[in-house]
């Protein structure tokens, strides 16, 4: 099972890298979304995908899955939510002010304000 998920995560990373190297800003942001998706799946997989019940204390269950990676993922998810929301608004604002979402046109020399 871990091997299968690892391959899927690899595909996600490849797609994210491809998108982030493109010219359009919105494709780059989609790439960051896929990248964080892959990273979160990776924590889950690296924690181990053994059989067990959900980590909620119930009488009579012998084995639970590892709760720590789930807490780490939950933290990482909200953080990347916050950052992505900020990035999207920034992209919108940049589109309004600069009039383009083409990264090639966003170069400019350092001296023009």
């Amino acid at each position: 099972m871990e091997v299968l998920i690892s391959i899927v995560i690899g595909i996600l990373f490849a797609a994210a890298t491809y998108l982030m190297l493109s010219k359009s800003l919105i494709r780059i942001i989609i790439g960051t979304g896929l990248l964080s998706h892959g990273a979160h799946l990776l924590i889950l997989t690296m924690g181990g995908l053994k059989q067990g019940s959900a980590p909620v204390l119930v009488k009579g269950t012998e084995q639970y899955v590892d709760p720590l990676p789930q807490a780490l993922i939950l933290t990482a998810i909200v953080i990347s939510f916050g950052v992505t929301a900020f990035f999207l608004v920034l992209a919108y604002r940049a589109y309004q002010e600069l009039g383009t979402d083409n990264m090639d046109l966003l170069k400019g020399s350092d001296n023009d304000e």
Partner: peptide, 19 residues
């Protein structure tokens, strides 16, 4: 922001491997 989003994702990945 783009550079730091990528490096943060790599940080999460590194922590996952180490774990």
């Amino acid at each position: 922001i783009l550079v730091n989003v990528i490096s943060s994702a790599l940080f999460v990945i590194a922590v996952a491997y180490l774990y």
